[in-house]
Design a protein around this nucleic acid. Structure first.
Lengths: 327, 327
DNA sequence: CAACATCCTGAAAACGATTCCAGACTGGCC
DNA sequence: GGCCAGTCTGGAATCGTTTTCAGGATGTTG
């Protein structure tokens, strides 16, 4: 078995308390003692068992990250940033993938609750009430990413501004009729993006044609491509990049020129977006910043500082899938 | 604070021991008692604190997953499969991203060791000796994915067979001179793939030109593309899909026709591979199967069943980036 | 040398669960 | 009624840590 604090105490010839102090608050022990303890700990390869510490201090130094689908390339970026930032503060990360199932989500949260100091819920699928119920029952701090659910602190992307940039870009290219391929009806991001888009198109006095809702995947996009092509729209904005890629694929198969006949704009700026042909014009979301800010908010919450909701900037990345309106 | 076993005991009017038994081994308590305990637990939303259980039983019901870079699309697929399979057996998953740094890797392993029952190390970057040192010191079961390090049980892909399929395919198309863009020199997969490739080309009596080593990223591939184009090779096999995509990108920019002038083959079959133009011919790895098998091996290890190394099949996916040799 | 503060240490309690052990109760049988 | 086996329960010990508390050693000051 791995070494425990007792082993270190015995080897160093001091009590457990001293070992604990020597390692956790070195200034409280005599240098000589500290030296002995440190050597013993090193020799035995001793690392404290954080689970035991958690029982006493109520601080496990773990955070739980729950997300709908790790296969969606958006999430790994966020998780990576979370895990990197968490490590800076010596927190470890529990990961739960819910497979888009709200029931799995809440049960995962409940099961993990005792092992973590707080949760980062990425784009949670459960209803506001369900999330609040979890919170009331567990009393575990929760920060939400990519969604607003009062009363939780949240980090969201400024979709409205992203949509404004995208619509402005299309307007400048001469487009006046835009289609939107909507993501899951239950998705907060989808509603948020749609809201931003509506406001942008109306302020530019452009027509908005809404298609969908589709699954937020390549197949989802492909499924609705024909409908979009048959519409009077000369440009289409997709709920996210995967959907946009589905459109692109299907357009290519049907020999509908992009951007000659129709322009396509995605959302998220996943790695893929820059690599397909034509390269996808898309609204980039600051994924790393979202992850980092989420950790910061959670640490604020844990440190009794009051966290303030954060909105991260978005940035239109113009690539090759958008062009002047036909004729 | 969330409810503890004491709260449940008080509410149900029984002792802690009975609560524990009622929930963990229901057959050992009177139905009436069980009923009362269950109701109390439900009313309080009680979930046992697994950390505390872990102290007693030595079983935390957590597994640790350590990987070099979540931003590489290969890993999220594996992690997702791991987490799904783990949940089936009521295990939760700790995730550690090492950012390709062997030092971070070993320190992460040590820090997490006490909180998990075992590790799944995906493509670990530390040396064999370092890994063995961790093992000796921690006595925590370890299963390795995508690499062989004795004495640990391992799950690996059958790269040799994949390479044989790829080379066979290229040979049938008339190619006789193949380039290989090597990944990181320290990567076991890279060495394994290269070994398989050498054996395949020599059995087909073809020339092999080795380029690299490059970082296993799009940029890595792009960096070496010109070199490959200048070589006499008519086809190139890349260490992985990201590298292949880098090649593809750079070839497109330089107007080198794929597969007209040169054929490109990737490795892994990440989602991206099917979406770029031309769609990438690649050797698919059974990512989900690797994740699942990894969990199974680890559970074998934990259950005192002796695990047997597993080799998962590979499958060449022919798409549009390979074609007949020029002329 | 007494009085006192300061520094350092170890014993013991605590955290939340599980498990061992012993005892209380029940029922069956003579 | 007396004995025994079997079933069920609670008390107490346990895991590896942290923290509180009290006391011992040391040094300073009058």
């Amino acid at each position: 078995m791995a070494a425990t604090i007792k082993d270190v105490a015995r080897l160093a010839g001091v009590s457990q308390s001293s070992v604990c102090r020597a390692l956790a608050k070195p200034e409280q022990v005599r240098p000589e003692t500290r030296e002995r303890v440190e050597r013993a700990a090193r020799d035995l390869g001793y690392y404290p068992n954080r689970a035991a510490r958690g029982l006493i201090t109520g601080r496990t130094a773990n955070i739980g990250v729950v997300l709908p689908d790790l296969a969606n390339p958006f999430f790994p970026s966020v998780v990576k940033a979370i895990q990197t930032q968490a490590r800076l503060f010596d927190y470890a990360v529990f990961l739960g993938d819910t497979d888009e199932d709200p029931a799995v989500e809440t049960s995962l949260i409940r099961a993990l609750a005792k092992q973590v100091d707080g949760f980062l819920l990425c784009s949670p699928r459960a209803s506001d009430d369900e999330l609040r119920a979890c919170d009331r029952e567990l009393q575990t701090p929760i920060v939400v990413l990519n969604r607003r659910v009062s009363p939780f602190p949240a980090v969201t992307a400024d979709s409205a501004d992203g949509m404004r940039q995208a619509v402005g870009h299309l307007h400048a290219l001469g487009h006046r009729r835009i289609a939107y391929v909507a993501g899951p009806r239950t998705s907060w991001s989808n509603r948020d993006r749609l809201r931003g888009l509506r406001s942008a198109t109306s302020s530019y006095d452009m027509d908005l044609i809404e298609a969908g809702n589709v699954a937020p995947t390549v197949d989802g996009g492909a499924a609705v491509a024909d409908l979009v092509a048959a519409s009077p729209a000369t440009a289409v904005i997709a709920y996210n990049d995967l959907v946009a890629l589905g459109l692109l694929n299907r357009f290519r198969d049907r020999e509908i020129a992009v951007p000659g006949r129709i322009s396509v704009v995605g959302f998220d700026d996943i790695l893929l977006a820059g690599l397909v042909t034509p390269a996808l014009t898309t609204v980039a979301i600051a994924k790393e910043q979202i992850g980092r800010a989420g950790v910061e908010l959670l640490l604020d919450l844990l440190g009794d500082r009051s966290p303030v909701n954060k909105r991260t900037p978005t940035q239109l990345i113009v690539r090759a899938s958008t062009g002047p309106v036909p004729q």
